[in-house]
Amino acid sequence: MSAVFDKPSLWQRAAPMFRGFDGPLAFAVFLLACAGLVTMYSSGYDNGARFYDHGRNMLIAGAIMFVVAQIPPQRLATFAVPLYTLGVALLIAVAIFGVTKKGARRWLNLGVTIQPSEILKIAMPLMLAWWFQKREGQLRPLDFLVGGVLLAVPAALIMRQPDLGTALLVLTAGLAVIFFAGLSWKLILPPVLLGLVAVTLVVAFEPRLCADGVRWAVLHDYQQQRICTLLDPTRDPLGKGFHIIQGMIAIGSGGVWGKGFMQGTQAHLDFVPERTTDFIFAAFAEEFGLLGNLLLIAGFVFLVLRGLMIALEAPTLFSRLLAGSITFMFFAYAFVNMGMVSGILPVVGVPLPFISYGGTAMVTLGMGIGILMSISKSKRLVQT
Score class of each variant (00 low, 15 high):
Gln138Thr: 08
Trp131Arg: 10
Thr113Cys: 06
Arg135Met: 10
Ile114Tyr: 12
Gln115Leu: 08
Phe132Gln: 06
Ala123Trp: 01
Leu126Val: 10
Pro141Lys: 07
Lys134Leu: 14
Lys134Gly: 14
Leu145Asp: 04
Met124Glu: 15
Pro141Leu: 11
Val112Arg: 07
Arg140Phe: 05
Val112Ser: 11
Pro116Ala: 08
Trp130Glu: 09
Met124Val: 10
Lys121Phe: 10
Ile122Ser: 12
Gly137Tyr: 02
Asp143Lys: 01
Gln115His: 13
Ala129Asp: 10
Ile119Lys: 05
Met127Asn: 06
Gly137Leu: 03
Leu142His: 09
Leu145Thr: 13
Trp130Lys: 14
Gln133Glu: 11
Arg140Gly: 07
Arg135Pro: 01
Glu136Lys: 15
Pro125Trp: 11
Gly137Phe: 02
Leu139Phe: 06
Asp143Met: 04
Glu118Asp: 15
Arg140Asp: 06
Arg140Asn: 02
Met127Ala: 13
Gln138Leu: 02
Ile122Trp: 02
Phe132Tyr: 11
Pro116Met: 10
Leu128Asp: 07
Val112Ala: 12
Gln133Cys: 09
Leu145Ile: 14
Gln138Tyr: 02
Pro125Glu: 01
Ser117Leu: 08
Lys134Ser: 13
Arg140Lys: 12
Lys121Tyr: 10
Leu145Val: 15
Phe144Met: 04
Val112Tyr: 09
Leu142Val: 15
Thr113Lys: 08
Ser117Gln: 07
Phe144Gln: 06
